[in-house]
Design a protein around this nucleic acid. Structure first.
Length: 277
DNA sequence: AACGAAACCTGCGCGC
DNA sequence: TGCGCGCAGGTTTCGT
């Protein structure tokens, strides 16, 4: 059968939305069997994943970088972390080296969870308990829904670089390293600036840029950076819109000075020293 | 409470 | 060619 996969790398909000869009095609199918090859991917607090057998997939939604599989009275929470991917295959298809979990549906459909680095996590909960799961409840709103005053009040107390603050999902939900680099460039703010030194006006700009960049990235189906030889799978196009991420030593589109690469909080940070004040 | 660093994993590209 | 090192888009946990 045709293999539909998500070969988007290191998913941030736009990539997770793109994955969910594909997975929604499985709605109304029932789970008939489950194979867990690498159990450490299941959160220790999770209910037994096998409770999903004979349950029907209602829908697949997202919140920030989380996928939420809606199964009648249960929700399967899935975070892809760095390299998690889903492939829709046939039950008879052989397992690839890094396929660690299979959710088998009727019509011979096998949803394979593939994760090279095994950083991803899944947790099954009762739908009624969603408001008790701190990994979800502690998250801030997504940029589209954020209250600018609340956002400013959070960053304005912090004594760490704005780059690190924007990666904190309890402050703004959905940005990862790629999009934070792009948002700071679009906002013309130096990533090293401390949160407490960011003005309300600059803080507003960060929210506006986040919405602008994520919206376009969603429209483009996310960012695909690594090149895969496989013809299988879904890839995004936002990499064609990147202005600074991975552009070390290339020239800034605006001022023609060299983009620099530095480390902030251990993460690669690309920026234009001239444009970003 | 706030912050930094380490831990969790594998594969790839680079320099020697 | 082979080896060792650094690097990768995330989050949690631990120590100060």
């Amino acid at each position: 059968m045709e293999l539909i996969g998500t070969r988007l790398n290191m998913p941030e909000l736009p990539e997770v939305r793109t994955v969910a869009k594909v997975l929604k095609k499985l709605a109304n199918k029932n789970i008939v069997d489950i194979k867990i090859i690498y159990p450490k991917l299941i959160n220790p607090n999770s209910l037994d994943i096998n409770l999903l057998i004979n349950k029907r997939l209602i829908d697949v939604n997202t919140f920030g970088k989380y996928l939420l599989f809606d199964f009648e009275e249960y929700i399967l929470i899935s975070h892809l972390r760095m390299e998690g991917k889903y492939f829709i295959k046939s039950i008879s298809d052989p397992y690839l080296k890094h396929e660690h979990i299979a959710l088998n549906f009727n019509d011979e459909i096998s949803l394979r969870y593939h994760d090279t680095r095994k950083f991803g996590r899944m947790q099954l909960i009762k739908k009624d308990d969603l408001n008790k799961v701190t990994s979800i409840t502690k998250l801030a709103k997504e940029p589209f829904d954020i209250d600018k005053e609340t956002f400013y009040n959070k960053i304005n107390k912090k004594n760490i670089p704005i780059k690190s603050i924007l990666l904190d999902q309890t402050i703004i939900n959905g940005l990862g390293n790629i999009y934070v680099n792009e948002v700071l460039y679009d906002s013309k703010i130096n990533p090293l600036r401390l949160g407490k030194d960011i003005t309300q006006e600059e803080s507003n700009r960060l929210v506006d840029s986040s919405i602008k960049i994520l919206s376009l990235a969603i429209k483009e189906g996310g960012t695909t950076i690594k090149s895969y030889t496989s013809s299988l799978g879904v890839t995004g196009n936002y990499q064609n819109h990147l202005k600074v991420h991975m552009k070390d030593k290339e020239l800034c589109n605006i001022c023609n000075n060299k983009i620099e690469k530095i480390k902030i909080g251990g993460r690669s940070t690309y920026y234009c020293k001239v444009c970003q004040k």
